[in-house]
């Protein structure tokens, strides 16, 4: 067992976990933060996306011990106009992929703001990349939505990206 601490949604949490426990299971089963979802447990669906020091990762493939002393934000710690945009644009149906989509979108917007390119960026050396619908779709492709709310999700992100951010 390993005694670790991590900052989760702003508060320091003490955890006593085996090294094999994933960050996802630590959040869901140890801390009761069930907003972060498990869809595949192998990095293929994005439902478990959380932000670590502001960067999006798949928490199912992260061992909790590897993230000791880091700053984790889960959906429970997110309070962003993007969430209202998701509701208004109906970027959700069953709701199960939604927390992952929202955390991923927040991480993605930060990546874009930092000037990172994507697989559909025509010139990867460009400094400023317009966040078109095509760019959003590519950058969000790590988050599956089987209900097919993709249009609403993209619209919500566009609205959020277009506002004061």
């Amino acid at each position: 067992m390993a005694d670790i601490r991590m900052r989760v949604n702003g508060s320091i949490e003490k955890l006593d976990v085996e090294p094999r426990v994933s960050l996802l299971d630590a959040l869901r089963e140890h801390l009761g933060l069930t907003g972060t979802k498990k869809g595949c447990d192998q990095g293929a669906c994005g439902a478990c996306t959380v932000l670590v020091d502001g960067e999006r990762i798949s928490s199912c493939l992260a061992l909790a011990v590897q993230y000791a002393d880091r700053d984790i934000t889960t959906i429970e710690g997110v309070s962003d106009p993007l969430q209202e945009s998701f509701v208004r644009h109906d970027g959700l149906q069953c709701g199960y992929c939604t927390p992952g989509q929202i955390c991923s979108a927040l991480g993605m917007l930060a990546e874009h703001a930092a000037g990172m390119a994507s697989a559909v960026t025509e010139h990867v050396a460009d400094e400023e990349i317009e966040l078109t619908a095509e760019e959003i779709r590519e950058r969000m492709s790590g988050n599956l939505c089987r209900c097919g709310s993709y249009n609403g999700i993209v619209a919500a992100i566009q609205e959020s990206a277009g506002s004061a951010r």
Binding site: G43, E55, I57, G142
Partner: peptide, 8 residues
């Protein structure tokens, strides 16, 4: 992969 996995 995906943005999440590339970050890891």
């Amino acid at each position: 992969a995906s943005g999440q996995l590339r970050n890891m």
